[in-house]
Amino acid sequence: MIINNLKLIREKKKISQSELAALLEVSRQTINGIEKNKYNPSLQLALKIAYYLNTPLEDIFQWQ
């Protein structure tokens, strides 16, 4: 199972779901689904999230 800290990191950086979704060219619902662990992002999307949040990938997504 993958645990993610996306919501915590996104809120710490004061970025809304809508703003992050626009940067990543995905829907706000996609961001919401990832934050709620409804599904895991593709590797490409995970890397883009880490890039736009300027945060190491392993700080956002962790195996458990």
Rank of each mutant, 00 (worst) to 15 (best):
F61S: 01
I9S: 04
Q62C: 08
A46P: 00
L53Q: 01
I34D: 00
E25I: 07
I2C: 08
N32F: 08
D59Y: 08
S18P: 08
E11T: 12
I31P: 00
I15G: 01
L53S: 01
L53M: 07
S18W: 15
Q62A: 09
D59N: 10
I3S: 10
S27D: 15
N4T: 03
L45A: 03
N54C: 08
K14A: 13
A46L: 04
L20K: 01
S18C: 09
S16L: 09
S18E: 15
E11Y: 06
N32V: 15
P56Y: 04
E11Q: 09
W63C: 06
R28Q: 15
E25D: 12
K38F: 12
P41A: 04
L23G: 11
Q62M: 10
L53E: 00
I49M: 07
K14T: 06
Y52C: 09
F61R: 00
S42Q: 06
I31K: 00
D59P: 01
S16D: 06
L53T: 04
M1T: 06
R10D: 01
E11P: 02
R10I: 03
S27W: 03
E58Y: 10
K38N: 14
L24S: 08
L47N: 15
T30Q: 11
S16C: 05
K38A: 14
Q17V: 14
E35N: 01
L43W: 11
N37L: 07
E11M: 09
Y39H: 13
L47G: 12
G33D: 15
A50S: 11
N54T: 10
L6K: 00
N40E: 11
K36A: 15
Y39C: 11
T55R: 05
K38Q: 14
L23K: 12
K7C: 06
L53H: 00
Q64A: 13
P56L: 04
I49G: 00
T30L: 15
Y52M: 11
A21C: 06
I60H: 01
E58S: 13
N37W: 14
L6W: 00
S18K: 10
P56F: 03
I3C: 08
I49Y: 00
G33Q: 11
L6M: 12
W63D: 04
I31N: 00
A50G: 05
T30G: 03
T55I: 06
N40S: 14
P56C: 06
L53W: 03
P56N: 09
N5C: 05
Q62K: 13
R10E: 01
M1R: 04
E11N: 12
M1H: 05
L8F: 09
R28V: 15
I2T: 13
K13W: 06
Q29M: 13
S27I: 02
R28M: 15
E11G: 06
K36V: 11
N37Y: 07
K13Q: 12
Q64G: 09
P41N: 01
I15W: 07
A46M: 07
N4M: 02
Q29A: 13
G33M: 12
K13S: 10
K7F: 08
I2R: 08
V26G: 02
T55K: 06
E11V: 11
W63A: 04
I31Q: 01
A21P: 01
L8D: 15
I3G: 07
K12Y: 15
V26F: 02
I15L: 14
K7T: 10
N5A: 05
E35C: 02
Q44K: 11
I60L: 12
P56I: 04
A21S: 09
L23Y: 14
I9C: 06
A22D: 13
W63N: 04
L8P: 11
D59F: 08
Y51R: 10
N54V: 06
S27R: 09
Y39N: 09
V26H: 03
N4W: 02
G33H: 14
I9H: 08
E25G: 15
N5W: 05
I9N: 04
L57R: 04
Q17H: 04
K13R: 09
K36G: 14
Q17W: 03
K7E: 12
N4F: 02
Q64D: 13
W63V: 05
S16V: 04
N5S: 05
N40H: 08
N37E: 07
G33R: 12
M1A: 06
N37R: 07
K12L: 13
A22V: 12
S42A: 05
N37H: 10
Y51V: 10
K12A: 13
Y39T: 10
S18Y: 14
L24M: 09
F61K: 01
Q62Y: 06
I49R: 00
L6A: 03
E35P: 01
S27F: 03
G33P: 01
P56T: 06
A22W: 06
